[in-house]
């Protein structure tokens, strides 16, 4: 397979890859030994920070008794872990495809860590979901076939990684620190965040570099197409956080209408904008997006 990379300032990325590989070796972990999985979960615990709930700020949420909010929180965590699994499945495929391309060896070395770490994340998320929820929610993402030239495909792959991981990391960091949450929930979020900070450093660097190296050759139509694509991807990524079947599992009757109302609710728009702001400022300051999208 041919991989774009001509004209890339790959030395820069090779140096960062080496540094990140060292850090990955130093923090190499064995989640199979690190985590204790209780036989069953206590009913009266918090599993998702209430402020991050996809229903927070709605009248429906405010009127819920605490028990129902906690039940909803459990299913929102299962949904959060599920969307992580789906994102990471796509990530593993894309990373594996780019091993031992004509990029410098240091990059392949780091991609091995990246792949290994993502695989461990998936086992954690998958273990939690299958053990306690007996399921992983399916993703609603449905990709239409689109053909891009290699440099565009490489760029879009890493841009998607950054978007996906930026949003997830906000939740991870918030929940790892949230003392109301069950220790198992905090520990998984903390574990994920520890690896994600390296992935994000790598992702941002290579995304920016690919754009700077190639955008000049793409032409206006392609650049506009890429921007439209990223806008759509951002919307689609956010949609995964709102799942009617979560609301059904939490005992809400009009779960589809609840989904429609939650997505359009003003406080949810603000929440999405707040969580996205770090990610969006990266894309705007690096010139990839012309302006911050409204989500």
């Amino acid at each position: 397979m041919r991989i774009a990379g001509k004209g890339l300032k790959m030395d820069n990325i090779a140096a960062l890859s080496q540094k990140l590989s060292k850090a990955s070796v130093k923090r190499y972990s064995n989640p199979y030994l690190e985590f204790d999985w209780p036989e069953s979960l206590s009913e009266d615990s918090w599993w998702f920070s209430p402020e991050l709930s996809s229903l927070s700020g709605t009248a429906l949420y405010d009127a819920m008794p605490k028990e129902q909010k906690q039940r909803l929180a459990f299913w929102e965590l299962v949904n959060f872990f599920s969307l992580n699994i789906h994102g990471e499945k796509a990530l593993l495929q894309g990373l594996a495809k780019r091993l031992y391309s004509h990029w410098p060896t240091e990059i392949s070395e780091y991609l091995h860590h990246f792949l290994g770490e993502e695989n461990k994340h998936m086992t954690l998320f998958g273990t939690f979901c299958m053990r306690y929820a007996k399921k992983v929610y399916p993703s609603k993402a449905y990709a239409l076939n689109e053909n891009h030239i290699q440099s565009v495909e490489d760029f879009l792959f890493f841009a998607r990684v950054v978007i996906f991981e930026e949003f997830v990391d906000y939740y991870n960091l918030y929940m790892a620190k949230d003392e109301r949450l069950h220790p198992l929930c905090r520990a998984i979020n903390q574990y994920h965040h520890n690896d994600e900070s390296r992935h994000l450093a790598f992702g941002r660097k290579i995304t920016r570099q690919l754009f700077e190296s190639h955008a000049g050759d793409w032409g206006d139509d392609t650049v506009n197409g890429v921007r439209r694509y990223l806008g759509d991807y951002i919307q689609a990524t956010w949609k995964e956080y709102y799942n009617p079947w979560v609301y059904k599992d939490a005992g809400i009757n009009d779960f589809y209408d609840t989904y429609l109302a939650a997505w359009r609710h003003e406080s949810q728009k603000q929440l999405r904008q707040t969580i996205s702001s770090h990610c969006f400022s990266f894309f705007v300051t690096s010139g990839i997006l012309a302006e911050e999208p409204v989500v």
């Binding site: 609603k140 993402a141 449905y142 990709a143 239409l144 759509d232 919307q235 689609a236 949609k239 009617p244 589809y256 989904y259």
Partner: peptide, 9 residues
């Protein structure tokens, strides 16, 4: 494609 997600729902 984003609207297809919505359509699936």
């Amino acid at each position: 494609s984003v609207q297809i997600m919505e359509l699936i729902l």
